[in-house]
Design a protein around this nucleic acid. Structure first.
Lengths: 184, 184
DNA sequence: AATCTAATTCGATACTTGTCTAATTAGATT
DNA sequence: AATCTAATTAGACAAGTATCGAATTAGATT
């Protein structure tokens, strides 16, 4: 889960918590001692330790009056090793809609009836629109140039530009000799 | 400097910024595309990218209309490798007053005239007080028991307990046969 | 030169969170 | 059993920041 990674970074994104980790890397300390060393109230330190414990970086053992906290160095090494592993990077992206950009462009350029307001001048947007338009053609079926123009006409009057760009971006193929087009 | 490490963790302590890193790990993107993919406004994405650029994780190259951002994978590997190195851990602790705890305990237990209100019952606090009291003795000089009691009397009437604890915690030594004490 | 576009910057708002004080809890000492 | 002590929890406040809309900037296209 991606939340776990965020929680980890959030836990270490504070100067005082980093100091606690640094101190515990030297030796275990009680809450009271840490509070004195960092010039903070015990309740504040307790709160910080809870967050570090939440990600498994520290743990406590009670000893008479005191709660002695110690660093789990194994966990530290473990976490740091594969923080930016392929798996973690992929996990952060898992719930992203890959077509969101195309959808947004289509939403901006297409009327309710499906026709285009204009043909985008920007490359990235033109590509998105062409991917939308090309869906009107069946894969592997041959179309005459006349038929192609008829279909493209439903999107925009400048059928010649649409046709040329579709071929230019490789979304449709054209037979060298004859006037036939197809989508692969 | 420790600030640099905090800045690094803060930069990654946000779900959307982690998603940006994850996306750029696959391929470069423009601000506009990232905004659509994350369902955020371009201004927000611009802000996030600025923070990531601040720690050297991403960089931009302009390409026609667009600012195409890419991940610096070298920097990523580099940072993650020695995030929790000895040097970094030590850096976070560098400006901490190691005597803060002792000072606090002394402040709590010692009157303005230097005498003790009570002798602490808690081990850690007793240790701190004993380290304070033992300073009254010169190193490597021999003291008779009578002289020891005289000195300790300025701190607390229960000189026997103080004397015993000083020896018990190894802060003062006692010659087996005679009644002589010294601090090493 | 004039116009258009993506990106950035600025100002405002809402939410998160670090810190403190006060109250409560868990445990040990007497 | 009664009393202390360290730690935690709860509540409140203040500082930091993620996000947005509006204004501005840098650059490319016509």
């Amino acid at each position: 889960m991606s939340d776990e990674i965020v929680t980890f970074f959030k836990a270490l994104a504070d100067a005082n918590r980093l100091k606690i980790v640094g101190l515990l890397a030297q030796q275990p300390y009680s809450v009271e001692e840490l509070a004195a060393l960092l010039d903070l109230k015990a309740s504040t330190v307790s709160h910080h330790l809870a967050r570090l414990a939440q990600i498994g970086l520290v743990s406590a053992k009670t000893e008479s009056y005191y709660n002695i906290y110690q660093l789990d160095e194994k966990a530290l090494q473990n976490k740091s090793r594969n923080l930016f592993s392929q798996a973690n990077l992929a996990a952060s992206v898992v719930d992203i809609d890959a077509d969101a950009y195309d959808n947004k462009v289509v939403k901006d350029y297409v009327r309710k009836d499906g026709s285009l307001k204009t043909i985008p001048a920007q490359r990235k947007k033109l590509e998105a629109i062409l991917r939308y338009v090309v869906k009107a053609f069946e894969a592997n079926k041959r179309y005459s140039e006349k038929k192609v123009n008829e279909i493209l006409g439903k999107y925009h009057e400048d059928t010649a530009s649409l046709r040329r760009e579709l071929v230019g971006y490789g979304l449709m193929k054209r037979e060298g000799g004859g006037g036939e087009y197809w989508r692969e």
